[in-house]
């Protein structure tokens, strides 16, 4: 079993500097998706890249301290729930599923603007879901399953030695 030592100062410093910019850029990509290439998926992947950088530079534990697997799964569910929830709201408000024009009375805007805001809402949901889903997959696949302090003690019994890291 290889144990990696995460002490490369240059990498860590560069990451520390880069990560805020990456995240800001990702938020821009999500929010500005209406006017330029971009959107929830692209932005979400960039956000994942930021988290993945932490993982690469500092190791699993510091990354998991920021967001552990359990939180990632729940946030991922929340992201999809935002999307489906907006759709369901439209349905409950009397339209068909995902008919954003039903948001207009709620937001006090015109129908086209309501549609635009609806798109923004779902893009945020997509961004959240994609970020956490990719991050969760990375943690599961690349993590070494030994420092599972964050996870459900019931659902995670002792890890098996010999897993790849």
């Amino acid at each position: 079993m290889l144990t990696r030592v995460y002490d490369n100062l240059i990498v860590q410093t560069v990451c520390r500097v880069m990560i805020p910019f990456i995240q800001i850029y990702a938020l821009y990509v999500i929010a500005h998706g209406h006017y330029s290439p971009g959107g929830g998926f692209q932005g979400g992947v960039i956000l994942t890249a930021a988290l993945a950088l932490i993982f690469l530079a500092y190791g699993q534990e510091p990354a998991a301290r920021r967001m552990n697997r359990r939180q990632a799964s729940m946030l991922c569910a929340a992201g999809v729930a935002i999307y489906a929830g907006i759709g369901l709201y439209c349905l409950l408000a009397g339209g068909n599923f995902l008919d954003y024009s039903m948001l207009a009375p709620l937001l006090h805007v015109s129908v086209p603007r309501a549609r635009s805001l609806g798109i923004l809402g779902v893009e945020v949901g997509v961004g959240l879901a994609v970020m956490t889903a990719m991050y969760s997959i990375i943690l599961d696949i690349a993590g070494n399953h030994e420092d599972e302090s964050d996870s459900d003690p019931e659902s995670c019994s002792t890890p098996k030695p010999g897993s790849i890291s």
Binding site: S73, M74, C76, A77, A78, V80, A81, A84, G85, G87, L88, L91, N96, F97
Partner: peptide, 20 residues
């Protein structure tokens, strides 16, 4: 008349809620 949408979305939402 909304059943066609709900029959897909309800299990989906339930699956999301299953995690927490």
């Amino acid at each position: 008349q909304q059943f066609p949408a709900l029959i897909v979305v309800i299990p989906l939402m339930a699956a999301l809620f299953m995690v927490p």
